[in-house]
Amino acid sequence: MLIRWAFAAAVALAPLGAAAGAAAGAEVPRRVVSINLCTDQLAMALAAPGQLLSVSALAHDPRTSLMAEQAGDFPANHGRAEEIYLMRPDLVLASTFTTPATLSMLRRLNVPVVTFEPEVSLDGITASILQMGDALGRADQAAAMARDFRRDLAALRRAAGDDAPVAATWAANGYMTGTRTLSSDVLRAAGFSLLAERLGLEVGAMIPLELLLMADPDAVVVGPSGSAPARADDVVHHPALARSGAERIEVDDREWICGLPAVLDLARELGSTRARLSGQTGEPSR
């Protein structure tokens, strides 16, 4: 895990040159613009007052952002090179998945850009916190946050019992997330074992409802109902799923879309559901 982090960080930082140097050295960025939902939220948690100029519009949307209220203090941007350049930033925070055209345009305009890998594990969150601390010149605050996070995570993992009920995530169009995703890691930390593991899914895939039912998981983790209607969601509400006897657990996407320390709150909540399920089934470990 550590090796992967080191590799990811090296890849993320390699093309930055000036930006990384400025962040690590004496020069602390004063005009920081974040253009990715996840860097938005981590930056809001770590930045010094006045350091952050703008966050993305998604961070203002309570459907996707856990920090929509705090985001209200910052003007929204839409991740377009032109509007970002006009803000005269001395650092732009982005994801490695941000549109390459935008990133290369910003670099051509000599705007320093730091990119963050999307989180695929809980341990990766520590790495991102530290990377954000370096980029913002807030290494001490980041180290403290990372320390607390590691402590809480270790406590959570100790609390997970031996009996691990099988959980499966299940979303629109029958999409199941794979083992190498943050949501799977959160479920593992909460003490579940994963159906995706048995199916050999690493990233995730559309799974026919039939296969989900035949695998007979103890819990199915779905998004909340009540968003805009779409036929793609029908399969999440299929009557056969309701009759299957699997516990239906609803998790808001925004809770684990980004690797923030707050995912541990969700993991604790899932952990108590898991404890109840373990008590109910009364089966020894499967």
């Binding site: 968003s227 036929r231 793609a232 969601d233 299929h238 056969a240």
Partner: peptide, 21 residues
């Protein structure tokens, strides 16, 4: 506003009986 709605276009153009109830 549902992010999955656009992926339905194929269904409406081509038809499918998958996972109906």
């Amino acid at each position: 506003p549902n992010p999955f709605a656009a992926s339905e276009i194929v269904f409406w153009l081509m038809g499918s009986l998958a996972d109906r109830s």
